[in-house]
Nucleic acid binder design. Structure first.
Length: 597
RNA sequence: GGUCCAGUAGCUCAGUUGGAUUAGAGCAACAGCCUUCUAAGCUGUGGGUCCCAGGUUCGAAUCCUGGCUGGAUCACCA
């Protein structure tokens, strides 16, 4: 049991014995004592005044008296206004540290029998162009949240839904047919997704030319957009594809494979993966039967023209189309179908969708309609919504070429990491291969941390110059501290010092040291909180604070050079444990840590 | 217009289940610390009407109401 919960229950006892009043444990507020005051933990006594009917100071004194007498670890107390500051014994903190050290996967809840099963869908790219910065945020969030949920004892299934059909795919196909002259990834050496993306852009350019030509002939702009021959041809291609025309499907398959091969390389470099990949070309007709059943049950209604709708006015929303006049499905229909299948097939308890905030409305409606159709799990779908990534020059627009390409960005990061590392020259004795591994870890650590430290729901600014800064609140700063700890521990061992399994509890430790242990003690709570909020940012903020504190400690305290061997042992145990937490916390963000850098 | 989200230092962000005269980091600027465990580090200085106005209370950046600004969304597109 943690010291906080012991104090809580004792405060309840104290209020009862001093004032004869029963209170609930949750009314007891415990917080870290502010730096400027003496003590470790603070009880806020204001809520108890109406029971004690005494001044805040007096009440705090009486409770403090009771707690020091009744809790072994509490050695002293002081009162500032209505705040009761408790001093916790050093030996207690050291035992907390020792406990953490011997716990395997400290802070993690192991996967147990009957664990909750959660599916998380993320990435979900279109196969007409390469991945860009916005996708990076999506992928990093999805992967990290999956890691965090696993650490909370969930059984996690990661899935990707590839959007591989539709008019936008046909545009790339058509442009390639027209202007491609048989180019392939092999013939050009261009990564498949980039090659296809090139023709998606090409389509747009040629299409615009056609519109201009039509307008020059006197056609209205809106009409020209609809009548441009290229567009009509792309639409014709989509019809052929849907009819299963062999030639079209073969072309589609060939170009999709190029893109998917390209994506695999990008995913691998990003360090994300999936347990199952769905293709929209397989799923886009799903959900129809469910909608028809809903219509028969009277939950949905049909217009004279044949289309089927859901009336959401009771929930303050509009009407939503589910089947067109011609009976074909829309996006929402498909999502209803796949959600049903997933809950049915995998027997999942929850489903998280990592999708940008422009689809907030869509997911709100999805949940409402599923509820209307009588699925009790409709409130178990969670939209993990994230904001846009903006650039200093404004928004990213694929057509204007202001997108930041994922592959380019990652390559640039690695180059910068390589340069910086070579300047600092700390990797002597490493082989080329080992050194490259470090550059990659540092580069990806910088990128991932930069993106994940921001609260997902906020729009974020991506400044390329700042993102490659390796000082301050950055991934490399944290990785550096880890590498430094490994170096110190290694030096200590090299001198023949044996680091014990547990530190001696009878030591005089500094405030900084006891504070570091309190942070160590907090790690499990942080993981739980991050899981509850599905927020990697909570992990990154915690790890940053921990590292910041550790670096101050490192600066002021000798570790391997401490002469008192018990104290040296303690500091090494503490350092090693903090190293473990850094490694573990970073793994929850999908970031690796190098042993040297 | 309706709905949802955001607004904290010059810039990028923490802090939001209400808590301590003094609201925290990083970057940028300036000034220090490497013959001693990794200086991708540490220390210091300057920098704030926490968007505005009311309200709730012992106490509000945090909760409520109204407004302002920015973003997203409201298709027989996906």
């Amino acid at each position: 049991m943690s010291i906080e919960s012991i104090i809580k229950s004792k405060v309840v006892e104290a209020v009862n014995s001093c004032y004869g009043q029963g209170i609930e444990e949750k009314t007891v507020q415990i917080q870290k004592t502010r730096r400027e005051f003496e003590g470790d933990l603070t009880v806020v006594v204001f809520p108890f005044l109406r029971f004690s009917k005494k001044s805040p100071e007096e009440t705090a004194n009486e409770l403090g008296q009771f707690l020091t007498e009744n809790i072994e670890a509490v050695s002293a107390f002081n009162v500032v206004k209505g705040f009761l500051n408790l001093v916790i014994d050093n030996s207690h903190w050291i035992s907390v540290l020792n406990e953490a050290v011997k716990t395997e996967n400290y802070g993690f809840t192991p996967l147990a029998e009957g664990a909750k099963k959660v599916m998380i869908e993320y990435s979900s790219p279109n196969t007409n162009k390469p991945l860009h910065l916005g996708h990076i945020r999506n992928n990093l969030l999805g992967y990290s949240v999956a890691q965090i949920l696993k650490a909370n004892g969930y059984e996690v299934i990661k899935v990707n839904l590839v959007n591989d059909r539709g008019i936008h795919i046909c545009k790339s196909m058509l442009a390639w047919l027209r202007f491609g002259e048989g180019e392939t990834p092999e013939s050009t050496g261009i990564k498949g997704d980039h090659l296809v993306g090139k023709y998606y852009v090409k389509f747009d350019q040629e299409y615009k030319k056609e519109i201009e030509a039509l307008v020059a002939e006197g056609m209205e702009a809106d009409e020209a957009k609809k009548q441009a021959p290229l567009l009509l041809e792309a639409q014709e291609m989509l019809r052929k594809w849907e009819a299963g025309d062999e030639e079209t499907v073969a072309l589609w398959r060939k170009m999709n494979d190029w893109v998917l091969e390209g994506f695999d390389i990008t995913y691998k470099k990003m360090g994300v993966d999936f347990d199952k990949v769905y293709f929209e070309s397989d799923t886009y007709k799903k959900g129809k039967a469910i909608v028809e059943k809903g219509l028969a049950d009277g939950e949905l209604y049909q217009k004279d023209t044949g289309s089927v709708w859901a009336n959401l006015e009771a929930d303050g929303l509009d009407h939503k189309l589910l089947l067109r006049d011609d009976g074909t499905s829309v996006y929402m229909t498909q999502d209803i179908g796949t959600a049903f299948e997933r809950f049915d097939e995998f027997n999942i308890d929850e489903h998280v969708y990592v999708v940008g905030n422009e689809q907030n409305y869509h997911f709100q409606v999805l949940s409402l309609i599923l509820g209307k159709l009588g699925y009790e799990w409709h409130d178990k779908i969670q939209h993990l919504s994230y904001g846009m990534v903006e650039l200093p020059e404004g928004k990213m627009k694929s057509r204007e070429g202001t997108v930041v390409d994922a592959d380019d960005l990652m390559e640039e990061m690695v180059n910068t990491a390589r340069e910086t590392s070579k300047e600092l020259g700390k990797l002597e004795g490493y082989s080329e291969e080992e050194a490259e591994d470090v550059y990659e870890k540092v580069a990806m650590g910088a990128l991932k941390y930069f993106i994940l430290k921001v609260d997902p729901k906020k729009n974020m600014m991506f400044n390329p110059k700042e993102s490659i800064d390796f000082n301050g609140n950055t991934g490399p700063f944290i990785q550096y501290t880890y590498a430094r700890i490994q170096s110190v521990v290694k030096k200590a061992i090299d001198t023949g010092f044996e680091i014990p399994e547990a530190a001696s509890s009878n030591l005089n430790i500094s405030e900084k040291e006891s504070f570091l242990i309190q942070m160590v003690a907090n790690y499990p709570t942080v993981i739980k909180e991050a899981g509850k909020e599905t927020s990697p940012a909570q992990i990154s903020n915690y790890v940053y604070d921990l590292v910041k504190e550790y670096n101050q400690f490192y600066h002021d305290h000798p570790i391997a050079k401490e002469e008192n061997t018990d104290l040296r042992a303690f500091r090494l145990v503490l350092s090693k444990q903090i190293g473990e937490i850094i490694k573990s916390g970073m793994s929850l963000l999908g970031i690796g840590v190098p042993e040297r850098m």
